[in-house]
Amino acid sequence: MDIFSNHKRLFLLVILLFGTLTVFVAIFPALNNQYSYEPLPDSIPLTEIEQRGKMVYIGNGCVACHTQQVRNVEIDKVWGSRPNVAADYAGIERTNFWVNTATLMGTERTGPDLTNIGKRQPSEDWHLTHLYQPRAVVENSVMAPYPWLFELKDSIKITEKDKIVNLPARYIKDKSKKVVATEDAIALVAYLKSLQQVKLPDGTPSPEFLYKREQKKHGANESGGSSALDGAELYTNYCASCHQTDGKGVSGAFPPLDGSAIVQGIDPTSMVNIIMYGYNAREEYGEMPAIGQINDLSLEELVALMNHERTSWSNDAPEVSLEEINKILEELKKQNENQ
């Protein structure tokens, strides 16, 4: 055969074969995706500071450990309310002259997926503490610390503009100084908070999560224990990253719930208020975001969560009822509308 001894023909054939395949499995599908999807109507483009934060995210290689894709499988349900669709990424274009498009979907999940981190963890204070020293808030974390996004400043020199990072005392060697977030840190947190799944337009069916997990059986008394179990799970999902699994909080950053007067109060109004609408009255601690509102907690979820907190650890307050909390919620709603 000629191709055995004619290098021109052989390598031309090789180029043609590979080139054709390249066009059909890479270039065409890529172009097709690029032109047939538009950003979702509810999606908001990144602001200037969020864009800067994204550059910090890219530059420090966060994508090495964090994915930004919720796959259409049950395992991924914890990372978002729905699987990602192509339109979620449609608004992302070339970053700048030097840097390619950054969808940041990632291939490793050494740390959690961040597609919806803005909803899951809306607290700026938590993010700053976590970036400065991950183990201050997540004991078993193996994440790298990012101290160069912060500066140590003399307590005297601190101005109003400075964003102070709340930290347990053991993480600051020089007691006369405070940890202050740089603009890069603020921008990075702004970007992380912007990462929220956008609602699909009305009428669009959301793709389903495949490979459903088989329901686990909890023995014979299924009816009784279910609400207590839900409470623990909800606590892990919404509260534990700041207040910790043991309810002890993080000294100097997030208050303990174990032994807290508010949590165990006979009148649960202020507890409901804080969970639903947030709290920022105590300077020594970070600000509590409006967890309940952001995550659209249902009445049942709220009650399960509250009862878990009221009866766990050393707490021993009476459980609250659905009716009681429903009443308080309505009153709070009215109050807020009046303001």
């Binding site: 590979f18 890479a26 599908p29 995706n33 690029q34 449609a90 390619n100 969808t103």
Partner: peptide
Amino acid sequence: IFINIIAVVSYLPFWQDGLGETII
């Protein structure tokens, strides 16, 4: 030959918006 084609196709910006980037 392939690595040259692969590198050029993957660094050209024309088909890299949105999920195009991921396919490439």
